[in-house]
């Protein structure tokens, strides 16, 4: 029985003449003496011949034509993408520019809009240099400015005919384009005059203004302009002080009875004011209403 199983393994090699003479002799000797294996070997040959004799098949005459139609109808993924791009370009006859250029332009416009996105009213005071009064008597804290200067705003500031704003202070845009961009919120005083060097946030703006006016003579400064107040009580003043006394201004404010002492440590972060001449600087101070 074991021999029969082994012999069957050689059927293919023997049938195809692919076995060595010793194997062939062994198989043939076994087949002579074993009727069952002889019958199996015959069926093995019949199987191979039957498989080889299966009818020949041929493709239809228009196989190539059908194939080409199919390829043209179902392009590859890469070809599909290229085709879609071409179609997209062709579908915009008035602007037949490459899609890449269009995308670049779109991204540029988006970036421009985001860069000029108007800050929230509440963010103006928090981001700029601010004096934040949280007490009923006008206590003030000093915060450094962090926003960049928008150079377009310099010329529009009413007090800046010959000066530039602080290098690190944010001056909101008040040009023609802005009115449409910020139409969704109320304009602030700073919006209207285009200056925002120093923000004083106080629940009592009158008290804060009074404090400032009292401080100025002590530091050889003077009030050069005072802007109107809007419905929110905001006001803006322009002062000229000796450049050496800029730090003293906030110190003096702090040392004045209405100011928190803890805020003094942040004065070093304050931006430098714009120079009027070799000795004096011009400083814009915005007073905003702090929440009560």
């Amino acid at each position: 029985m074991m021999d029969c199983e082994r012999i069957a393994d050689y059927f293919g090699a023997v049938y195809e003449g692919d076995s060595d003479t010793q194997t062939e002799k062994m198989v043939k000797d076994h087949l002579k003496s074993c009727a069952a294996c002889r019958e199996d070997f015959k069926w093995y040959g019949v199987t191979i011949q039957a498989l080889a004799n299966l009818e020949q098949v041929a493709p239809p005459n228009d196989f190539l034509k059908q194939l080409n139609a199919r390829i043209d109808k179902n392009p590859s993924l890469f070809q599909s993408i290229i085709s879609q791009i071409k179609n997209l370009m062709n579908s915009i006859p008035t602007a037949p520019v490459p899609v890449g250029a269009m995308s670049l332009a779109f991204v540029t416009v988006c970036a421009f809009l985001v860069y000029n996105y108007p800050p929230e009213l509440s963010q103006i005071g928090k981001s700029g240099l601010s004096l934040n009064s949280t007490s009923q008597n006008g206590a003030i804290t000093v915060e450094p400015a962090s926003r960049p200067v928008d150079p377009r705003m310099v010329a529009s500031a009413p007090f800046s005919s010959q000066t530039a704003p602080f290098s690190h202070a944010y001056v909101p845009y008040d040009g023609p384009g802005r009115s449409s961009a910020v139409s969704w919120r109320f304009p602030t005083v700073a919006d209207e005059i285009g200056a925002d060097n120093l923000t004083v946030e106080s629940p009592q703006i009158d008290l804060a203004l009074k404090t400032l006016k009292e401080i100025l003579p002590d530091i050889q400064g003077k009030l050069v302009d005072e802007k109107f107040r809007n419905a929110f009580g905001e006001a803006l003043v322009a002062v000229i002080i000796p450049s050496s006394r800029y730090g003293d201004l906030t110190s003096a404010l702090v040392n004045h009875g209405a100011i928190e002492v803890g805020a003094k440590s942040r004065e070093s972060d304050s931006p430098a004011p714009a120079k009027v001449d070799s000795r004096n600087v011009r400083l814009y101070i915005r007073f905003t209403q702090a929440p009560k």
Partner: peptide, 19 residues
């Protein structure tokens, strides 16, 4: 005889079914 079967139509069907 198995060899004789090769000439018949039956074997073609049997082979196809076996495949």
């Amino acid at each position: 005889n198995p060899e004789e079967l090769l000439s018949g139509n039956q074997i073609r069907k049997a082979v196809i079914e076996a495949i």
